[in-house]
Amino acid sequence: MTELAGRVTSLDGISAADDDAVLANGCQHVYHSQSSAIRDAARLFRDSDYHLEHITCLDLRSDEGGGLRLSYQFNVHGTSDRHLLLVDLAPDAHAPTIVDIFRGADWYEREAFDMHGVVIDDHPDLRRLLMPEDYTGHPLLKDFADADPERHIMAAPMSEEDEGDG
């Protein structure tokens, strides 16, 4: 365990993930974190010259006891030392923002809000990112079903009578 990893795990609410239980191929360090601890961790990574590679939201509600999960991945330029923080969110799907620490988190957090409905507390500008402003629903949730039939793209070819419309 590197010195930085030791400092990360010494933070309140963060514990190193068990290597046997969690597989993170390509990431050197994996942690479980509570959502309250993510800002401290982000600040620590920022002070250590690390950058935020991505924030990915996962819908694990079909698993037993699972909910939404945010994965924060930090890395450093020049070499490869990836730290992956897994934050399991409470059922109300709230997470603190880290925009004031990493400005690049802005769009990732908006994407998590847009696609998974994670509410990022204190985000200065929480709007939809990819979907239209008036869109309802969060498309990357596993139980998502688009209610508006007009938006459905026909996968099956048109019937013979419709021919000529194209």
Binding site: L23, A24, N25, G26, C27, V30, S71, Q73, L84
Partner: peptide
């Protein structure tokens, strides 16, 4: 692939 997270990065023409 085995259960878990897999991250893989390449250098594309535009970056990481």
């Amino acid at each position: 692939p085995p259960a878990g997270d897999h991250y893989f990065a390449v250098e594309s023409a535009r970056g990481h």
